[in-house]
Write a protein that binds this DNA or RNA. Structure first.
Lengths: 199, 199, 199, 199
DNA sequence: CCATAACCGAGACGGTACGTCGCGTCTTGAT
DNA sequence: ATCAAGACGCGACGTACCGTCTCGGTTATGG
């Protein structure tokens, strides 16, 4: 006995958010602006998403920017691949302009925090974990603290992307990977280079 | 040949900002609220600081949260000291609530970006650089990319402080330092432990 | 399909305007002051009235100061009654302080001008016209230019009320009425034409 | 030992006021605008004139709009001449836009009120009084209340100029003069008294 | 098969905070 | 020594946007 929700509005709103974030940035992204661009109204949006933060987060999730599946058979190359995807993804305004703004609001809303991590961090984390597990099975790396390791890899990329205090050029993924892997390898410094059998 | 600016207002405003950031957070920090708390008016504030961001940044600079001078004679211990200070500082709402919000606005204002780095990042960076230079003079570490190294140290702390995806406990500074130093040491794994002569 | 306007706000605002005009005068009547006194906000007021002028005008209309209905059966007495009401009305700050201020702004807004005349002048004019028409039917007065006559009656009252260059005592209505109705010449109607010797 | 006041500033300011009043009207006439146009500063103006009102009044006085000296040897013609000058003067924005605004502020400043009357009203009044005195000496008019008479003449012009509720065409001066000088009754002077049947 | 009741869309509301303009004052440097 | 000048502290302005509430229109079901 109830009317069904019009899914075209969902799509139009998310598309409008993606466009507007790129055009005007996050801080100038207003609910009214989104509604106007999407050809609908504020309450229609508000019924679907609890707040501007949730809305933007949903739009991000809809894009899946910067997550890759990769399996080179070599830990070093896998990690470089993941980090490079992260580096490129963070260059997209849709991530780099939105993430800090969301971060600022996470403290006020634990549920938002959870969703944020689930959408923004978990997919990237999981992709890396898979590569690490495979490397462990291959014996490339010793027993290790995965959470710490993931942060050692990803943090420098994220840090530079957010603070922009130094270049984040195309070789940065390689530099970080090498520096970290030497420390966590099995003592053989070659660990930090490609370990694939020649051929 | 003009009237002099009343410095009591400067102080009252900065103090009001510090208080209010801790009380209500950054997003609920309004110019009107600051003016009211400081016992002055919006235009008086606006004449001194170009935007809310500049104002908040100035209040942060006024506090110098989380910068330490340390010289233990051992690179490992120095770095742990710096990172621990960073970790503790980032736990202060005055940093953790403000930094992401500022980050979000840096893209729109290059001058703000510069000031932000000068106030938030440079002092911490410089303190670490001093420790690294001393270690190089002592021969503890080989030739290295200082900027990369600094990011390897600091990024994990900042990353966890901002994303809160994992614990940032009191032993994290030690964990990060050890992991990174093994990789950049001179091959002697002892590098990552205290190198001070016994005594 | 929209929300309904809260009429209590309309009433509270108009009442606040009436009070404040009497307390502080027109030039010190601010939108913020009105909003505060009425217990509402500026935008709520602005949605209802286009400008401070329209607002004040509405408050005046709400009071209907100085309009009387009178039918004595005698033109002279009717006019004296109307003019006395006008005289007394103009003594009320609600009129005497507001009218000149509004007059000053009429030039910038034709619509306001129209409303002003409709509210301030038409009711008084109409009341007088009724009396004049009755007198014409009774044969008391000859064919005449009603608009001119109304101005001859009312203008002196208004003029003295606004300029305050001379007393506007309780006998002024009588004086003006008599002077206009019988003329001030010596009885020789030629007085009003050129009296210069021909040549 | 004292510097002399620069009279060029006086002149430049008054000229700027005259221009600006005609260009933007009274309500948009700001001290800052005047200072800018005159090439000087606000305090320099403020030292010379107590308020915006006094300044504008001085600019009006400087122009002597609408005062004429006339002596035709005939009261009717003299009055028409004076009223026509008043009519034309009131059409000048320098008078019609300024006078109501000044009127609105007279209540708050008795001294301003005095100056206003001295500058705006007295010269016109005096010119008329001279004509009336001459007419009395010629025996054209009987003993009369000069103040009342002056108001009967001038008020309709001023009234229409301010309220703009009716035309103020080139024949209005003549109409008013004739009506006041001969009256509007049917010639039976009883018209101006109560005509009700006794009882 | 149609009536009905729920729920959606839309629009305007009351209100907070914004950024700006102009005021009147103070204080300083030049004449 | 005095005045022109510039910047100050401040009140009020008009506006953008927020989050909410109320309303017609549509739709799927129960009688």
């Amino acid at each position: 006995m109830a009317r069904r929700r019009d899914e075209r509005i969902d799509r139009a709103v998310l598309a409008a958010v993606s466009e507007l974030v790129r055009e005007v940035g996050y801080s100038a992204l207003t609910m009214e602006g989104v509604a106007a661009r999407a050809g609908t109204t504020k309450p229609a949006i508000r019924r679907r998403w609890k707040s501007r933060q949730h809305l933007v987060l949903a739009a991000m999730a809809h894009e899946r920017v910067g997550v890759v599946e990769i399996d080179t058979g070599c830990l070093h190359c896998d990690i470089v691949g993941h980090l490079e995807a992260l580096r490129v993804g963070m260059a997209d305004p849709a991530l780099s302009r939105v993430i800090p703004a969301l971060l600022a609001d996470l403290a006020n809303d634990p549920q938002l925090h959870e969703e944020f991590l689930a959408i923004v961090w978990e997919p990237r984390r999981n992709a890396c974990v898979v590569s690490l597990r495979r490397a462990q099975e291959r014996g490339e790396v010793k027993q290790l603290d995965i959470d710490l390791l993931l942060d050692l890899f990803a943090a420098p990329i994220v840090f530079r992307a957010l603070f922009r205090h130094a270049d984040l050029g195309p070789d940065f993924a390689e530099l970080v990977t090498r520096a970290v892997l030497i420390g966590v390898g099995d003592g053989d410094t070659r660990t930090s280079y490609c370990t694939r059998p020649a051929g």
